[in-house]
Design a protein around this nucleic acid. Structure first.
Lengths: 157, 157
DNA sequence: AGATACTTGACTATTTTAGTCGGGTTTATA
DNA sequence: TATAAACCCGACTAAAATAGTCAAGTATCT
């Protein structure tokens, strides 16, 4: 039963944090790319086969990565993708940003003079989400593609 | 174009990490409850009004919290909910678990003898997701409801 | 010329989210 | 004892997001 008097309830439909297959695929594909990125470009077909990701979906993901200048494309036969920066300089944050995975936990705008949820005060848990956000982003900011490749090589030995 | 020879591609539809309004509402509501949980039970109606969360939705959320014994219900007039444990003993992990917010980053089963994605080896980024999972859960395991209430009181002063 | 590979954009089945809605039952109090 | 406040329960749903698919290109190497 919803009977609210003198109070307009405005639903908040927005998801406030996500991390899905798209982001995971992007990272997996880039680690693969970084590993095989010696001289020749790596084709999406190869990545698709090795990593078990739909080729069509990979194309979408790489279009985004290209726009954000994380990879460069080489067209034609023997073409593919190469990294556009050193693996050390590509942080997880950059990758997730590129493919639209947000780690934004607070939907209240900092610029606005109002508090959260249209109220005049900060919501009770505002600081928590702020903290959480930086906790996670801190992790992503530190981790580079290079770390992942090295981590992977170590485990192989 | 998807032309894969000798390779059966099995899509993974599963989201691997989420944290949405339901979890946020649960935490907000419980902080509210903990603050006003002195002698009398707190009604969902009051929480709804104070926190701007749909009453119907709150009822769903509290049903789950009750099943997990985080809150206790008091029926009848002047009824409501009370905490079933000390605020110090209720960790964020418990809350998120209760309302089905998973922080499970790896979909590969640890028990299975196979690796990830049905392959024989771990996927390239397996360790990353493992690390991320414990990084986040570590944060949630430490934070208790009591911390949040105190944090809130401090900021008021 | 032909094959390989990237490029673009539209389309879609399925699932999830964030609720709503309608009917209960329980209990304090007037 | 009537009533209203509160919890209880299950079904339903609009909208959005996800994880793709599909079609029709263009560029480049051999």
């Amino acid at each position: 039963m919803t009977i609210l008097v003198g109070f307009i309830y405005t639903p908040v439909k927005q998801r406030f944090m996500k991390l899905t297959s798209k982001g995971r695929y992007a990272v997996m594909a880039l680690v693969d790319l970084a590993k095989f990125n010696n001289i020749n470009p790596v084709s999406l077909r190869d990545i698709s086969l090795r990593q078990g990701i739909s080729l069509d979906y990979l194309e979408q993901i790489f279009a985004k990565l290209r726009k954000k200048e994380i990879v460069q494309s080489v067209r034609g036969t023997q073409g593919g993708y190469i990294l556009n920066k050193k693996a050390k300089e590509i942080k997880l944050t950059n990758i997730f940003e590129a493919v639209d995975e947000k780690v934004k936990t607070v939907q209240c705008k900092k610029e606005s003079k109002k508090g959260c949820n249209g109220k005049l005060v900060k919501c009770l848990t505002h600081n928590l989400w702020d903290e959480l956000e930086s906790h996670i982003n801190n992790f992503f900011d530190k981790k580079s593609l290079d770390d992942l490749v090295k981590d992977n090589e170590e485990k192989r030995v």
